[in-house]
């Protein structure tokens, strides 16, 4: 059984997972610089080692209720579109079997879930990066 290191975090009251390979870094309390013209889920810009990345409010993008956010941010690797995501809470890193994902329920279509894995009897939604990007693309941020 192939196990994959996976970062577990919460969006609303659901558990989400993201393969560690897709995570560049988890940064503590970065300064989010205000970007005029950008609104809503694009919170601003982060100076990430000299790169200027968009700070994205992931719970708001995917329509989760709840105000509270983790003080840390998840920076995605640059091989994809690099983004600094905020989530409701970062929990831990676990080993998950991602070889046999269950399909996500139809209701999760807008929630960027690419499949559901099991962790100690609880369901973990695997975050679909491409889904996040395409939702951002479709969003008129201006």
């Amino acid at each position: 059984m192939a196990m994959t290191l996976t970062l577990i975090f919460t969006l609303g009251d659901e558990l989400y997972g993201l393969e560690i390979d897709a995570v560049q870094e988890i940064i503590e309390n970065p300064i989010v610089h205000y970007v005029p013209l950008a609104t809503g889920v694009v919170e601003g810009a982060i100076n990430f080692h000299g790169q200027i990345l968009a700070a994205i409010d992931l719970p708001a993008l995917l329509g989760f209720a709840g105000e509270q956010r983790d003080h840390r941010r998840v920076v995605l690797t640059a091989d994809f579109k690099s983004l600094a995501l905020s989530v409701n809470g970062i929990q831990r890193i676990v080993e998950l079997d991602l070889s046999a994902l269950e399909p996500s329920p139809a209701s999760a279509q807008q929630k960027a879930v690419r499949g559901v894995a099991q962790l100690d009897g609880t369901e973990v939604n695997l975050l679909d990066k491409a889904g996040v990007i395409s939702q951002l693309e479709n969003l008129h941020i201006q």
Binding site: V42, A45, I52, L53, A54, K81, L139
Partner: peptide, 13 residues
Amino acid sequence: KKMGFPLDLLTGL
């Protein structure tokens, strides 16, 4: 510098 996606989509910046 060019800004990262999706900030690079903002016209005017």
